[in-house]
């Protein structure tokens, strides 16, 4: 594939966005307040707000834009437990993600190092990792709530359990596949185990470890929204659920956009960190 000129791609992106918003705006103009028949099951799903408020039309881009502007101008207000600014909710979510993710990194990287250096441990722990890894993190939620008895800590635990596997697997794999000749260099230079670990194995495995960290942050950000929808209280996931109960689609669309942008920023930060430790052989 030939590299396109950045300006051309950027212009095309802007055009596509304008087209999308234009079509959206047009369709929201034409679709009046239709008297759709309300399906009882749907009504049950929609819950309290819909039952009392009836049908709300899908918001137009202008309405959503106005709502986004409102949120952006005052992101950090707190007016009671159920009415807090989107910035506050985002901070809750980010705090949980970073706590669970940070603890996972503190456990997974040293453990992965040890597993990667010992073929015996690698073989012994691999079956457990292979079984635990594919479990949906949300499946741990009831168990976490039951044992921890605290919804906030439970969501941190769920973040921990979902981010630990890619980190662990990548660290162990990266450490185990350090080129033998580099280890031989360290041996002929009579490097201590610590010096070999920090000056040879760590930099050699760093790109693989960072890739694991990047995969993990992506998963953690996906999971936190679902976890917060489940346990409620605070956080961007709860915000979405709450606005769904209020049937405020403009707020939900705002939140979706914010979730996407924050996820992208997190991913790009780790991509930058990965590039910083990459090397060319």
């Amino acid at each position: 594939m030939r590299a396109a000129r950045p300006l051309a791609s950027l212009t095309l992106s802007a055009l596509l966005l304008a087209l999308f918003i234009g079509i959206w705006q047009l369709s929201s103009l034409t679709s009046g307040a239709g008297d759709a028949v309300v399906d009882p099951e749907y009504a049950a799903l929609v819950g309290a707000a819909a039952a009392s408020g009836g049908q709300t039309p899908f918001p137009s881009p202008l309405q959503v834009g106005a709502r986004i502007l409102e949120h952006l101008t005052d992101p950090f207000y707190v007016r009671g437990t159920n009415d807090q600014g989107i910035g506050v909710q985002l901070a809750y979510s980010l705090g949980r993600v970073l706590t669970g993710y940070g603890i996972a990194a503190l456990v997974a990287i040293p453990l992965g190092f040890v597993i990667g250096m010992s073929p015996l441990l690698y073989g012994a722990l691999n079956p457990f990792i292979q079984v635990l890894r594919p479990i949906s993190p949300l499946a741990w939620m009831p168990l976490a709530l039951y044992t921890i008895k605290d919804s906030a800590v439970s969501s941190i635990f769920v973040i921990f359990i979902c981010s630990i596997w890619p980190m662990l697997i990548n660290t162990a794999f990266g450490v185990a596949s350090v080129r033998r000749e580099w280890l031989n260099v360290a041996r002929t230079l009579e490097c201590s185990t610590w010096r070999t670990a920090f000056r040879v194995i760590l930099p050699a495995a760093a790109p693989t470890i960072m890739t694991g960290l990047r995969i993990s942050i992506g998963i953690a950000w996906l999971v936190i929204v679902a976890a917060e929808m489940l346990v409620g209280g605070t956080g961007i996931g709860y915000f979405v659920w709450n606005q769904w109960n209020n049937l405020s689609l403009a707020d939900i669309l705002t939140a979706i956009l914010v979730i996407g942008i924050v996820g992208m920023v997190l991913d790009q930060l780790l991509a930058m960190a990965t590039r910083a430790v990459s090397y060319q052989e």
Binding site: R179, E181, W182, N184, V185, R187, T188, L189, E190, V200, P203, A204, A206, V277, Y279, Q280, E281
Partner: peptide
Amino acid sequence: DGPSLDRAVIFQSHALLPW
């Protein structure tokens, strides 16, 4: 009974640390 700084090796594949 093991490698030593007194016995240096020049490896066929140079074995430089690429980072």
